[in-house]
Amino acid sequence: SEEELIEKAEKLRKEFEFIWNGIRFIIRENADEIRRFEELLKE
C-alpha cells in the first residue's frame, strides 16, 4: 500500500541521514590528516 511505501521511504531517509552524518563526522575529524595527505600527493 501507499502508506507502507511512505513508511519504508521515511525509514530509508533516516538511515541515510544517519550514515551521512557519520561520514561527515569522520571527514570533519580527519580533515587535517586528509589535507596533509593531499599535500603529500602534490609533491
Rank of each mutant, 00 (worst) to 15 (best):
K14D: 07
R13E: 08
R13V: 11
I34N: 01
R35F: 08
F37R: 00
K42R: 09
I23G: 02
E7Y: 02
F37W: 07
R36C: 14
E7A: 12
R35A: 08
R13Q: 12
A31P: 04
E10V: 03
R13A: 12
E38I: 15
L5G: 04
D32W: 03
E39N: 02
A9M: 13
I23A: 00
F25W: 12
R13C: 15
E38G: 11
E15N: 07
I27W: 09
K11N: 07
I26L: 07
I23Q: 01
N21G: 04
I34S: 02
L5S: 06
I23D: 03
S1E: 10
S1R: 10
E39H: 03
K11R: 10
L41S: 01
D32I: 11
E29Y: 13
E3M: 10
A31I: 13
E39W: 04
L5E: 05
E33N: 11
E10W: 07
S1P: 09
I26S: 00
I26H: 01
L5V: 05
E29N: 03
R36I: 12
L40W: 10
F16G: 01
N30L: 15
F16Y: 02
K14E: 05
I27P: 08
R36F: 12
E39S: 02
E4W: 04
R13K: 09
R13G: 08
A9N: 09
I19M: 04
F18A: 05
R35I: 08
K8I: 14
E17P: 00
I6A: 05
I34T: 02
E17Q: 05
R28S: 13
L5W: 13
G22Y: 15
E43P: 07
L40P: 01
N21H: 09
F18N: 05
W20S: 00
I23N: 02
L12N: 08
E3D: 09
A9T: 10
E3A: 09
R36K: 08
K11D: 05
I26T: 00
K11G: 11
R35S: 04
I26R: 00
E15G: 08
L40F: 09
I26Q: 01
K42D: 11
E43S: 06
R28D: 13
F25C: 15
I27N: 02
E15K: 11
D32T: 08
F25V: 13
N21A: 11
I34E: 05
L40N: 02
K8G: 08
E2I: 13
N21V: 14
I6N: 04
I23M: 01
I34R: 01
F37S: 01
E39I: 12
L5R: 04
E39D: 05
I34D: 02
E3I: 09
I6S: 08
E4F: 07
W20Y: 02
E2V: 11
W20R: 00
K14R: 07
F25P: 07
A31Y: 12
E3F: 06
R13H: 11
S1M: 12
E38H: 12
R13P: 10
E10R: 08
E10S: 06
I19A: 01
R28H: 11
S1G: 07
I26F: 08
E15F: 15
K8R: 06
K42S: 09
E43F: 10
R24F: 12
R24L: 11
E2S: 14
L40G: 02
L5H: 02
I6Q: 03
E2Y: 11
E2T: 11
F16K: 00
I6R: 10
N30G: 13
S1Y: 10
N21I: 14
I23E: 03
A31S: 05
R28P: 10
L12C: 15
L40M: 06
F16T: 00
E17A: 04
N21M: 12
K42H: 12
F37Y: 03
F16L: 07
K8P: 10
E4Q: 08
R24C: 15
A9Y: 10
G22F: 15
K14T: 11
R36A: 06
F37M: 06
W20I: 11
E15S: 11
K42F: 12
A31W: 13
E15D: 06
D32C: 15
E2M: 11
N21K: 03
E15R: 10
F16E: 00
I23T: 00
E39M: 01
I6W: 10
K14L: 09
E38W: 11
N30F: 15
K8E: 05
F16Q: 00
F18E: 06
F18D: 02
I34H: 01
R24W: 13
E33Q: 12
K8F: 10
F25D: 14
I34A: 03
E17L: 06
K11Q: 09
E29R: 05
